[in-house]
Amino acid sequence: MTPADLTAYLSAFRARWQVTLQYRAAALAGVVTQIWWGAINLMVYAAFYGGTSAAPLTLPQTISYVWIMQGTLALMPWGCDPDIADAVRSGAVAHDLLRPVDPWWWWFCRAAARILGRLLPRAVLMAGFAGVLLPLAGLDRWALHLPPRVADAALFGVSIVLGLLLSACITVLLNVATVRTLSPLGANAVITPLSLILSGNMLPLALFPAAVQHLLLLQPFAGLGDLPCRFWLGTLHGPWAAAALAQQVAWIVALTWGGRLALRRTLCQLEVQGG
């Protein structure tokens, strides 16, 4: 990759980031929805916990987990890039693919910028609400609590960045699937529920039955939410922390490789069709 290429990718990133940041009202509405959703979840978990504490996570830990998940909801790969879906529908996607840049990187930068642009305002607002406002209002029991150590917070940050890259990789794969099947509906319909469940967003992965724990920790979606949350809660140390980060990196590498392969094949197909 030459420096000139890099500039192109950076400007793709910057443009997308700016566009996404403009939707401030949407971010605010999104956060209100997430707070509501989180509140329902908290009340349900509190009822389930009742008196018992025989669970792998304590109730306060679960509460922090729920708030982090709601705050980082934008990290989920919600589906194919909407602009690409439009381009596929109108047939203009050939233009996108014929730009003198590597389409995988182009799409990756766009996806990463969009995710970051959606994530940052929502995460900050949510942290302000759950971490500051709730304790101030005397609702400390329901609040988001800080990680036990500074190191945990730092690892959480690293893990979130890896999660963002992972999510962008998945989004590129969805783009490829959309170009292939000529419609974003199929891929989007599968990926949304899948990522909500397997990332721990719907239910902390630690609360799933013990038999499937290892499997759950190895699958890629864990890196979108559950692993960062574990860092925040301070439950990953030493070799486990290294293993968790390695898991995320491994999936990023695998999905990059797979995504580039799938994209190359799709491009060959497009050329054959003359599309």
Binding site: Q22, Y23, R24, A25, L28, A29
Partner: peptide
């Protein structure tokens, strides 16, 4: 009306 406003 299409320009983003800070508050809905």
């Amino acid at each position: 009306a299409t320009s983003p406003r800070p508050w809905p």
